[in-house]
Computed example of a mutant assay.
Amino acid sequence: MIAHAVAAEWRKLHSIRSTHWVLAATAAFTGFTVLLAVQMAHVWDGLSADRREELLLRPLQELSTWAASLCLAVLGALSATSEYRTGMIRASVTVLPRRRVLLAAKATVVGTVALVAGEAATVGSFLGTRLVIGDRPFPDQHASIAHDLPGFLIEGTAVPMFALLGLSLGVLLRSTAGTLVSVVFLWHILPLLVFHLPRPWSERIGSAMPGGLTAQMAGLSADNSVYGDLLSPGAAAALLLAYALVPLGLAALVLARRDA
């Protein structure tokens, strides 16, 4: 039954026009990141040796993951709210009365698409920017591609977490506008508010923010970030899973108990 439900959810997600727009926006932003790297390479060529030590490429490489997290969170939200808007949710629960299975199938499809898209955006940005800068010795790019690639693969796992969070909020709120506002708040606004808290609370709470967990999973420092770096890789991974699975469990509970 779960296999048929997953196949049905895949067809539904593929049929939503916004799916193609969201994925196109993710790819476009990755390309834009590479174009920015071209500009940074030209800036590098015109700087003195002292000034070159201040020019870092890593923040630019991470932009694609940051943008993909929002794009796929929107996709997750729309995969749920579009069914409530069109009334398709009634047909879905009629065909598959086991609502937890329905939500599990939807989460499987959304999470898989988000993982593939997120890793493609993250790795594409990393490899594209490294290709563009060539042999220019940026101060944060001394390590080989093989050394840095695993860290970027781990960072890409933030994207399906945000996608599942968007899906869960869509099921809970049943409102596209309300869900998107909530997603943007959790994705960008809340970390900025935490950043302005007095220390050490900004670092303590920032370490638990969704956007900073993958860097801690990869063992990377969060210097010059709105996030802290106080968690071990294992604790950060567990918290990342909690951000995805706890709201999804709550959504399954609510979906099973209320009218469609």
Results as ranks from 00 to 15, higher is better:
Tyr227Arg: 05
Met217Asp: 03
Asp135His: 09
Val95Arg: 14
Ala49Cys: 04
Val116Ala: 09
Leu78Thr: 03
Ser225Arg: 13
Ala5Met: 12
Thr19Leu: 11
Val43Asp: 15
Gly151Ile: 06
Ile189Ser: 01
Ala91Val: 13
Leu60Phe: 11
Leu248Val: 06
Val171Trp: 15
Arg58Gln: 10
Lys106Asp: 02
Phe126Ile: 09
Leu253Ile: 14
Phe162Glu: 00
Gly228Tyr: 12
Glu9Thr: 04
Lys12Gln: 08
Pro160Tyr: 02
Thr108Cys: 06
Val226Ala: 13
Ala8Pro: 03
Ala242Met: 14
Leu36Ala: 14
Leu96Arg: 14
Leu240Thr: 10
Ala177His: 02
Arg100Lys: 13
Leu253Met: 14
Leu239Ala: 12
Pro247Tyr: 03
Ser92Thr: 14
Ser182Lys: 08
Leu57Thr: 09
Leu250Asp: 05
Leu169Gln: 05
Ala67Glu: 08
Val109Met: 08
Leu13Cys: 13
Ser144Arg: 09
Phe195Tyr: 09
Ala235Ile: 01
Ser221Tyr: 07
Phe126Thr: 07
Ala107Arg: 01
Thr65Asn: 09
Thr81Phe: 13
Leu75Thr: 02
Leu245Thr: 07
Glu83Asn: 04
Gly212Asn: 11
Val34Met: 03
Ala222Trp: 11
Ala117Lys: 02
Trp66Ala: 10
Ala236Met: 10
Ser182Met: 08
Val109Asp: 04
Leu173Ser: 05
Leu253Asn: 10
Gly206Glu: 08
Asp140Lys: 11
Leu102Ser: 07
Ala105Glu: 02
Leu213Met: 10
Gly134Phe: 04
Trp66Phe: 15
Gly228Val: 07
Val43Asn: 05
Gly166Cys: 02
Phe185Lys: 15
Ala218Gly: 06
Leu149Ala: 08
Phe32Asn: 14
Cys71Phe: 15
Thr122Asp: 04
Glu54Trp: 12
Val246Thr: 10
Gly118Gln: 00
Trp201His: 09
Glu54Asn: 13
His4Cys: 08
Leu197Trp: 12
Leu55Ala: 02
Trp44Leu: 00
Leu231Pro: 02
Trp187Asn: 00
Arg99Val: 00
Ala236Gly: 09
Leu241His: 01
Met88Ile: 13
Val123Phe: 12
Glu155Thr: 11
Ala260Asp: 06
Ala236Tyr: 02
Val22His: 00
Thr122His: 01
Val183Arg: 00
Val43Met: 12
Leu213Ile: 11
Arg52Trp: 05
Arg85Thr: 11
Met1Trp: 09
Pro137Gly: 05
Gln39Arg: 15
Leu102Lys: 00
Lys12Thr: 13
Thr94Gly: 07
Ala215Val: 10
Glu53Gln: 15
Ser18Cys: 07
Leu63Val: 14
Lys106Gly: 01
Thr179Glu: 02
Ala237Pro: 03
Leu173Tyr: 03
Ala105Tyr: 01
Ala236Val: 04
Pro139Gln: 08
Ile133Pro: 07
Leu56Lys: 12
Ala163Arg: 03
Leu153Phe: 05
Ala120Thr: 02
Thr214Leu: 12
Leu240Cys: 09
Ser64Ile: 12
Ser168His: 04
Gly234Trp: 07
Ala237Thr: 13
Leu164Asn: 00
Arg100Asp: 11
Leu245Arg: 01
Ser225Thr: 14
Arg130Ser: 04
Ala143Arg: 14
Met217His: 10
Ala215Ser: 13
Ala158Lys: 05
Leu131Thr: 14
Ala251Gln: 06
Ala235Ser: 10
Ala105Leu: 00
Asp229Val: 01
Asp148Ser: 13
Gly206Thr: 06
Ile189Val: 15
Leu231Ile: 10
Trp66Glu: 07
Arg174Thr: 13
Asp229Leu: 03
Met161Ile: 06
